[in-house]
Simulated scan of single mutants.
Amino acid sequence: METERLIMRRWQESDHEPFAALNADPQVMEHFVKPLTREESDQMIDRMEAAFDRQGYGLWALEVHETGEFIGFTGLIHHAFLTEVEVGWRLSRASWGHGYATEAARAAVAYAFDELELPELVSMTTVANVRSRAVMERLGMTRNPADDFDHPNVPEDSPVRRTVLYRLPNPSPAAQKTS
C-alpha cells in the first residue's frame, strides 16, 4: 500500500538492522517494558510476517517514499487477549513529528474497514504515552475509561502496565450489521 509519502509493505531482510536499532532506542521504547535485543527484534519480524501469511494482514514495514528509508511499522494486529483488531505503530525517533504515524494509520484503518470489513478497531497504549494517544484522537478514536485495563503481558509491578484503550467503529452501515 502507498500513502502520499509512505510505502507500507511486507518485511525485507534489509529491515532487520534498522528495526533492531529502533527497538533498542530507550526513548522509542519508553512506554514498553524494556528495549528489545537484536534477537527479540528479529523474532518480532518473524511473528509479523507469520501473521500476514496466516490472516492476510499485519504490521507493515514503513518506508519513506522519497528516500526509501525504513522508519518503523504501522498496521493491524490481533492480540489473544482482545476480541477486536488493533491498529498500531512504532516509528524511529527521527521520524516523529512528521505526521507519518497518523498518515499510515489512516491507510491501515481504511484497509481494515473497506477491505476486511471489520466492524471496529481498537488501539492501546500506556496512560503516559501522549504522542500515541494524540494519533488515536486524530484518527477519530475515542476512549471510555471503563475500557482501560492492566495489560496481561506486562509484569504487575511495571509502571507501563496500566493501558488505555481507544475505539473506532466502522462508519459503514453494512459493517455495523455484521458486528
Score class of each variant (00 low, 15 high):
3 T>E: 10
3 T>Y: 12
4 E>M: 05
4 E>W: 08
7 I>G: 04
8 M>T: 09
9 R>I: 14
10 R>P: 04
10 R>T: 13
13 E>N: 15
15 D>W: 07
16 H>Y: 12
19 F>K: 05
19 F>T: 04
23 N>P: 00
24 A>E: 01
27 Q>F: 08
29 M>D: 05
30 E>K: 15
31 H>K: 08
33 V>Q: 12
33 V>K: 02
33 V>R: 06
34 K>V: 00
34 K>Y: 01
34 K>E: 13
35 P>F: 10
38 R>I: 09
39 E>Q: 13
40 E>V: 01
40 E>D: 10
40 E>Q: 14
41 S>E: 10
42 D>R: 06
42 D>L: 09
47 R>F: 03
47 R>V: 12
48 M>H: 12
49 E>P: 00
50 A>E: 15
50 A>L: 14
50 A>M: 14
53 D>R: 11
55 Q>G: 05
58 G>F: 05
58 G>I: 05
63 E>D: 13
68 G>W: 06
68 G>C: 08
70 F>P: 01
71 I>P: 00
71 I>G: 00
71 I>Q: 01
72 G>S: 09
72 G>N: 07
73 F>H: 06
74 T>E: 08
74 T>Q: 12
76 L>Q: 01
79 H>P: 00
81 F>L: 11
82 L>A: 10
83 T>K: 12
83 T>A: 14
86 E>F: 07
88 G>T: 11
89 W>Q: 05
91 L>F: 15
91 L>I: 13
96 W>T: 05
96 W>V: 08
98 H>I: 10
100 Y>H: 15
102 T>E: 11
102 T>G: 09
105 A>Q: 09
106 R>M: 08
107 A>W: 07
108 A>C: 11
109 V>E: 01
109 V>Y: 02
110 A>M: 04
111 Y>E: 03
112 A>V: 03
114 D>Q: 11
120 E>M: 15
120 E>S: 10
121 L>N: 03
121 L>A: 05
124 M>H: 11
126 T>M: 08
126 T>G: 13
129 N>W: 12
129 N>M: 09
130 V>H: 14
131 R>C: 00
132 S>L: 04
137 E>A: 10
138 R>M: 07
138 R>Y: 02
142 T>I: 11
143 R>F: 05
143 R>E: 01
146 A>C: 05
147 D>A: 06
148 D>S: 06
148 D>A: 04
149 F>M: 13
152 P>R: 12
153 N>M: 10
153 N>H: 07
154 V>N: 04
154 V>R: 04
155 P>A: 12
156 E>H: 09
157 D>H: 14
159 P>Q: 03
159 P>F: 07
160 V>R: 01
162 R>N: 11
166 Y>G: 01
170 N>R: 07
172 S>E: 07
172 S>F: 04
173 P>H: 06
174 A>S: 13
176 Q>P: 00
177 K>C: 00
177 K>F: 01
178 T>K: 15
178 T>F: 02
179 S>R: 15
